[in-house]
């Protein structure tokens, strides 16, 4: 019996001492955390997409705790729901989130453009871009290997016929994809009915036409027909100033008049607007 005790007692004593030290240390050196932080962090969706401009959801929650001037409507994936919760929690006036959705500015699918070589390397847009600017004849267009699809935290992008396509029902507008595209083809637009230029080719019209039937040839017809003067052809490509679009008296006239059909009306009601309706 005593042999057991000689073994057990020292271990128990050491354990008690260690435990006591830990308890005392945690009492003395307790770090005060803002008690609102875990609650705020709980409200945020946790996608860590960085759309708010802070380093992940933790960063945004911290900024909200520490700086009362931080806007509550920065979380695009969380949208109205999160903004409402935050405004209640922090006692700030509610402000709606400008919901956005990702758009791919290329429509050069298999039917409209061709490949210039057969690629058998790493399945990554960044890799194929290094080989003569991509496997397609158009060096501005979608590389078609789906770096954006792999990066999308909500699996809202897929590659169809060599072109990335955004599924508006799943897209929350976090903007992760915009940073991954080596050609910078993806941008965020307001989550409503919109017109979109689905081409990014800066070549002169004749060159573009040879490469892809869907390309913008820079004919400036859209510039002339736009009642709001919202479209400008810059560097051989039509650029839409979306701030003027909401007042448009004749919505969709640019798309109807586009010579090559590269301006498209997209009914981009994303997941947030669907929820609202």
């Amino acid at each position: 019996m005593s042999e057991i005790l000689t073994a057990v007692i020292p271990v128990v004593i050491i354990a008690v001492i260690c435990g006591a030290i830990l308890v005392i240390a945690s009492k003395i050196m307790a770090v005060k955390e803002d008690e609102r932080f875990p609650v705020i962090r709980e409200c945020l969706p946790g996608a860590n997409c960085g759309a708010c401009g802070f380093a992940g959801c933790d960063g945004y929650a911290k900024a909200l705790c520490e700086n009362p001037d931080t806007p509550i409507n920065l979380c695009i994936p969380g949208a109205e729901n999160v903004a409402r919760q935050l405004s209640e929690l922090l006692g700030v006036e509610f402000a709606d989130v400008a919901e956005q959705i990702a758009v791919v500015h290329c429509s050069g699918d298999c039917a409209h453009t061709q490949d210039k070589y057969i690629y058998q390397g790493i399945e990554s847009c960044a890799a194929v871009k290094l080989m003569y600017g991509g496997k397609g004849v158009c060096t501005y267009g979608c590389l078609g290997l789906g770096d954006c699809a792999k990066a999308c935290p909500h699996r809202a992008i897929f590659v169809k016929d060599n072109v990335a396509v955004v599924n508006p029902v799943d897209c929350v507008g976090c903007g992760v994809c915009t940073k991954t595209c080596p050609n910078g083809l993806i941008s965020l637009v307001t989550d409503t009915k919109n017109v979109v230029v689905t081409c990014s080719n800066h070549d002169k019209g004749a060159v573009t036409r040879k490469l892809c039937f869907n390309g913008c040839i820079g004919c400036k017809k859209c510039e002339r027909v736009c009642p709001e003067k919202a479209i400008k052809v810059i560097d051989n490509i039509a650029v839409i100033d979306y701030t003027k679009c909401p007042d448009c008296k004749d919505f969709g006239i640019c798309a109807k008049n586009c010579t090559t059909g590269c301006i498209k009306i997209s009914d981009l009601h994303g997941v947030h607007s669907i929820n609202k309706e």
Partner: peptide, 15 residues
């Protein structure tokens, strides 16, 4: 026992 509590202690001190 000692290492486990030591690491916990170090964590508290560092924090």
């Amino acid at each position: 026992l000692v290492i486990a509590s030591l690491v916990q202690l170090v964590e508290i001190v560092l924090k």
